[in-house]
Design a protein around this nucleic acid. Structure first.
Lengths: 332, 332
DNA sequence: CCGTCAAATGTAACCGGTTACATCGAGAGA
DNA sequence: TCTCTCGATGTAACCGGTTACATTTGACGG
């Protein structure tokens, strides 16, 4: 392996001069610079990054914990993270945790052991919570956010967004509105449920929690939940789904029952994934700037890493937009 | 920072003994082992991974180059890669290249500079092709594979799979079959086109290349391509799309034209993404073991890295399955 | 009681950069 | 001519592990 000493010998200078030529070219004289660069070229020298990282105590890597990478929304967020990180010279170490806290802690260990400079968590769990009382490693919590997050956060105002969807359905005359939720203990689900109730309460309606079915954000779970709602004696006239994947599963089930969307039942989703405008009927949903979640999380994380500590407890609320398409219509 | 020397002092042993206790516990006596482990515990010591990597010349990281992470199929492949890598103690450095060769080469540099031990490329491009004639870093090419790949490969028999889809459409009586292709220079597209032609030729038909529209694997491009096909004087009675995303875009366009799938036009896709069974009508498609592509790629790559060189030019062909659903039916 | 040997442990070199500090040399000012 | 200053470059310590090799210890056979 060609290392810095070989290059130094080749160029007839010291290792320090080689290092300086590559890191701070302006402090070496033009003549030596050229000599060194020629030697670098000739030896096809590339600094050993593990050595650089070791010496400089900086890896320029970020760990990203994502619950399910196969989820279209998260895939977009990761795209945004990756783009922003790359532009700032950082790489990302990806972990598809499947919501397993042991796995999350293991990957968080990459930060504690200096293999990464910081961590972005897309789920409401603090992988450093159990670490003994040392200084917290740099972390940002985005998308699904802890209530008392010990770090900066990036999230949507889920409550307001859910309220907006519900108000849209109410305005169309719906009174019995079903909800296909996410997992029970998720703050995201809790907030969306609150927004849903806010809207009902404002309309003077009493929420009926027998119309709330849990799902797991996948199409099959939406299908199952819709099945449950349809099998009731008094099925809802509209269903608000906590993401588009479940909404597509639900629409499928509704059509299998011989009913039409939106004529018989309206369906609304959440996320505005690429398929939302191409399924049939196209889906009324909440558009979120998924890539921006990722970009913003990276920006905040690098602020902490670079010690711009004014950012240490920033909390960003990202904008949403209600996108009305074909899947919601007047109540029958 | 607590380092190995502090722990050694705390335990009253030498650094070598601490290192051995953690790496090869069986060579230290039980008594010392306990002492050392207690000191490790007390000091909350965790070895600095950058130092370990630097010294041992092994990072236990793999670089993954993915063209578009937001593509559902690739997201599944990455899930498989991540799972397999994690099980073998490796992390993955993800790069969403968007097909940009400069970016791909830059990330490939992480391997050349020893920040990763190997690379998995999911696109038909060799990022090391231009590197001056040194030994090739470990690499595996999966999914979309180079024709003369200088490394192990994992792929589908795209030609046979496309032929199977086409034969299915021919068996249903279709004679004018359109095709929504991928980008022009992709070997994947070329192979699928060949399989398509194989089937037509076997049925004694002459292919009509005016029925082949290029797309870019996204729903909107499928929508546009279908628009083009439908605006012809003699539109096809069936459309074979090179992935499910484009198929969904195409179905959408067909329905917008007031036509029914499959009664007026049949549509077939490729990949069997999660939505394929939940869209309306559900999609006839080719199921690929996406996660297995990832797992297999990791297995081959680690074989090279660990110098089991019998694997150095293994070429795996993964199985496919034609899944017939509602979107294809008898020709009108 | 001594020599031999193996197991346990210690010492220190090493990996490949970075950088504080030392050194050198040329030009300016006295 | 001598000294001072400053820019350019060199020397070597250092980061925190790993590991080859050296040393110590204790058991055992003769």
């Amino acid at each position: 392996m060609t290392n810095i000493r070989k290059v130094a010998k080749l160029a007839g200078v010291s290792v320090a001069t080689v290092s300086r030529t590559l890191k701070t070219p302006d402090v070496v004289s033009p003549g030596t610079r050229d000599k060194v660069l020629a030697a670098v070229e000739q030896a096809d020298y590339r600094p050993n990054l593990t050595a650089v990282q070791f010496r400089s105590q900086r890896t320029r890597n970020l760990v990203v914990l994502v619950p399910i990478i196969a989820n279209t929304f998260f895939a977009r967020v990761i795209g945004g993270i990756q783009e922003a990180a790359q532009r700032r010279g950082y790489g990302i170490l990806l972990c598809n945790t499947l919501g397993d806290e042991r796995t999350e802690r293991a990957y968080a260990g990459l930060v504690s052991t200096r293999q990464a400079d910081g961590l972005i968590q897309l789920r409401a769990y603090d992988p450093f919570a159990t670490s003994s009382g040392k200084a917290r490693p740099p972390m940002v919590n985005a998308c699904e956010v802890l209530d008392e997050a010990p770090c900066p956060t990036v999230k949507l105002d889920n409550r307001a967004a859910a309220r907006a969807v519900t108000e849209h359905l109410l305005a169309l005359g719906h009174r019995r509105i079903g909800m296909i939720k996410g997992p029970r203990n998720s703050p995201l689900t809790r907030d969306r449920l609150l927004g849903f109730q806010d809207a009902l309460a404002a309309a003077g309606l009493v929420p009926d929690d027998s119309l709330w079915c849990p799902g797991d954000f996948t199409p099959p779970s939406g299908h199952r939940a819709a099945d449950e709602l349809l099998s009731r004696a008094d099925p809802p006239t509209a269903i608000f789904c906590e993401n588009d994947e479940m909404a597509m599963g639900a629409m499928r089930r509704i059509k299998e029952a011989g009913l039409r969307v939106p004529e018989d039942i309206s369906v609304a989703g959440f996320d505005d994934i690429a398929f939302a405008s191409f399924c049939d009927p196209s889906l009324t949903t909440i558009a979120q700037p998924a890539e921006d979640f990722g970009r913003e999380a990276v920006a905040l994380l690098l602020d902490i890493i670079d010690d711009r500590d004014d950012a240490a407890d920033a909390h960003r609320i990202m904008p949403f937009e209600l996108v009305i398409r074909e899947s919601t219509g007047p109540a029958a």
